[in-house]
Design a protein around this nucleic acid. Sequence first.
DNA 1: GCCGAACCGTACCGTACGGTACGATTTTAG
DNA 2: CTAAAATCGTACCGTACGGTACGGTTCGGC
Lengths: 226, 226
Amino acid sequence: MDQATLSEAETEGFETFTPRQNAVLETALGLLVEGGDRALTTARIARAANCSKESLYKWFGDRDGLLAAVVAYQASKVRAPETGQLPETAEAFRDHLFSFAHDLLSVLSGDVSLALNRLAIGQARRDEAQLGRLVLERGRKRIGQRAGALLEAGRRKGFIEYEDRNAAFRTLYGLIIRDFHVRQLLGDVLDPEERDFEAQAGSAIEQFFRLYGSDAHSEPKTTQIR
Amino acid sequence: MDQATLSEAETEGFETFTPRQNAVLETALGLLVEGGDRALTTARIARAANCSKESLYKWFGDRDGLLAAVVAYQASKVRAPETGQLPETAEAFRDHLFSFAHDLLSVLSGDVSLALNRLAIGQARRDEAQLGRLVLERGRKRIGQRAGALLEAGRRKGFIEYEDRNAAFRTLYGLIIRDFHVRQLLGDVLDPEERDFEAQAGSAIEQFFRLYGSDAHSEPKTTQIR
DNA sequence: GCCGAACCGTACCGTACGGTACGATTTTAG
DNA sequence: CTAAAATCGTACCGTACGGTACGGTTCGGC
């Protein structure tokens, strides 16, 4: 697998798999969710999907290409969250943010997302991390774009105020996810109240508005620490 | 390795290694940081540490025991952050929080921490995650205790207000770490401004005070969304 | 100085994986 | 209907790993 192929095709979503290949990748995804990367061997995939190892290597090149294809396949499934039309009223804006937060919590806590992130993180080294880049490109950045468009719309309408949109997004992200993601990646199970994603999302959005709402600059109090 | 041994000894830090064993574990840690879990094979550790595989199995039981020992060894190194005396003035309290935030960002962004978390996450499955539990127990919970004591002291002194300490802690954590941890676990490299941990910590603490500072309840505005 | 325990280095074993080869079978194009 | 292409199932190869065994060596107790 050469760099150009990965950068142009796999990063941007030009690769499209045949239905048969999609079925195989779906089977592989199931194996991954069930047994982790140790279960994702070429022989097991072939047996579970009723295909030959030769076909796997013909379609995906090698094992790394197959892992990348699994990631790309999953990303292609959740494509197009489609921001829909942007909110016009303050209530609609808050609802959009709430939905975003709720979706984010639900998606990142899902079995498939956790399994794919575990896979990519387990493969990552200090230097290279092909799968990690793919996950970031196909997952994280799409989320950032959706949220970025939302925040920008809210700012133009005067519902919120910020100077650095990326900083505002990262604050929003931190308020929503807190330590839930890494804890779940490590195998921890959230408490029942932590699993109440509606409450968590509501709390996060409420805090976000207290920090960035357009009437929140009542008392800067401390101009800037340090 | 039976459950009791793991629960009592490894979880609570009763196991102590000989200097020779510590040296071997240090070597193993170096291999892990450099090459990830694929590089952490018994043969390589034995060669790099000038010891025999037989000794490794005698000391640590099997490979899982060895990985657990590596985690425990690293945890034993950073033991006792020692909360020191609790802050008496508002400025001291803020400084303590700032130090906590800065330390947290620095530690979680370090090569060793990232390598160990990648290892534990890579091993974790939906069901079992022995290493993940160990990392959570030895790393995360200590952090939570330190922060918890700090927050409680600040609340008693009237510097901040909250109802649920764990919720306050998780908000603080989210404001500090944002999406930095998972991004780095996935192999992403932070932007220069993101790597300015002093600025990031200052910003996080400033936001935290705006949410939880004792004079921050000026306008509840929306009692509770949902 | 002796002895036993711990330890090192190496060799060895069984297994499982990534990847390839090949004949048999199915699918597709014309 | 036929021929070519694609695919399947299986067998096979080389390698690398986890774990064990063993002879030679070091080291501490007496």
